[in-house]
Design a protein around this nucleic acid. Structure first.
Lengths: 252, 252
DNA sequence: GCGACTTTGTGCATGTATTCACAAAGGCTT
DNA sequence: AAGCCTTTGTGAATACATGCACAAAGTCGC
């Protein structure tokens, strides 16, 4: 399937690489910070340093949006902020609902970074009757039974799932059925969704595990234990000999 | 600089691609879940489906660890769990300190997914005297002045930074100076660290912005506004004409 | 013990991302 | 107004990642 490839534009063609899209918010943040400091113009070298990337990469990324720099000078901060914001869709407001008001849901509800960037939290939902009615950051927690109504009435287009793992897929199915096409998932499960729905996952324990891998690497690789007898490995290793028993605890 | 490339191993050579490392925790989770259901053996096809990836990719990923499957049969769940755990460094315990006990820090402290996977939270630190002394999930919040002592005494090797943006770099410098070489950063800033230190970033607002981009795409691309007059773009557009004023708010 | 069937492990082709390095483009100075 | 200096934008080279497709390797029924 070729997705909406055609629009009435002729400069930057509509195929911005995913890797670039993922970096644009970082550039945007760096630009905002420059703006606060009153900087009017920035070179790719400086901006790249602030964003923690290679300057050639930054220039190529920006070139996908169009040609917004001035050779010999750099980029005008305010103009670039606008162009990136527009490209990312931040010149309009997005209505967000947070589902699952545990510790994490509360933290998200109170997160200042939403409002300032065009994301409006319009609903906090939970299944727990004790939590429903509670007021958090100016919003009253509502019962998840009203999910479909809330999404419809308030025009929610992004759902943030912060429920326990066991509930996530069911909640996801419901928000998708109600018309949501973007989901940010904090529950430690792989959500399955129909084509056309985007899911992004944020997973604390995965990030820690990746760090652990590199940490171990620095310390000298895995404790070899059964690798001593060489390449035969598998055949010789006692198959159930797991030193720690990895019993899955129900999470969050 | 060629990093520790040599160990006493001859099977899977020590170059596991980063993309693979990032997926191993996902496989591990899927395997744990199979284990809970009493499944003893799984094919690459099934496991791939559970992890939400292509089965060829899964097989290639696993082949980097060694040859742990049986043709015609599949993979033995328990054995594979052990091998992946070992590769990720989860057969040993990692000591974690969480710095910054706001909403997010609390949520992290209470997150069940840590303990069950070999991560032990050994310290909660904050600069706010009102918070210090408070008990959260069985730990007492300590003052950040004791940072260096705590890291040294308790053998902290991973620091989780959940402070406000403004404090993050300073905290990071201190934990690195105290010997920490892995940092998980929740603050919305790019941390700069010396070589040999790994930083991973989790950023809620970046994820939302990426979703917004795709959401906008589905809806038909950016509102064109100044692109109407064609390719001239930049020259013709009124340079400060940002419809919304993107003033950076100090973030959670 | 043999043949049919299943599923792994991987070579190869394709696609995507990064980085280098430099010509083209603009501003600034004299 | 000419030339120097800076910095962009991008072609080309390289590196990394994905997915197909199939031979090799094993199991299981008969």
């Amino acid at each position: 399937m070729t997705p909406r490839q055609t629009r009435n534009r002729d400069r930057a063609d509509r195929g911005i690489p995913e890797a670039t899209v993922a970096r644009l918010p970082v550039y945007l943040r760096a630009l905002h910070s420059l703006q606060d400091r009153g900087v009017a113009t920035v070179s790719s070298e400086e901006l790249a340093a602030a964003a923690g990337v290679n300057s050639a990469k930054l220039r190529k990324d920006l070139s996908h949006l169009g040609s917004y720099g001035t050779r010999g000078v750099g980029y005008e901060v305010e103009y670039l902020v606008y162009q990136i914001s527009r490209e990312l869709g931040l010149t309009q407001d997005w209505v967000v609902a947070i589902i699952g008001v545990g510790n994490l849901g509360r933290a998200l509800a109170g997160y200042g970074g939403f409002a300032s960037r065009g994301f409006r939290v319009a609903g906090l939902l939970d299944a727990d009757a004790d939590i429903v009615g509670e007021e958090i950051s100016g919003l009253t927690v509502e019962h998840i039974d009203r999910l479909e109504d809330i999404i419809g009435e308030r025009g929610v287009s992004i759902a943030v799932i912060a429920t326990p793992a066991g509930a996530a897929q069911k909640v996801c199915d419901r928000v998708v059925a109600a018309g949501v096409t973007s989901v940010l998932n904090f529950a430690p499960v792989v959500l399955s969704v129909p084509d056309g729905v985007d899911v992004r996952k944020v997973d604390l324990s995965i990030e820690l595990q990746i760090l652990a891998f590199h940490e171990q690497r620095k310390a000298g690789g895995p404790d070899d234990l059964d690798a001593l007898e060489g390449a035969a490995g598998k055949a010789a290793a006692p198959r159930g000999a797991t030193p720690t028993q990895y019993v899955e605890a129900v999470e969050a």
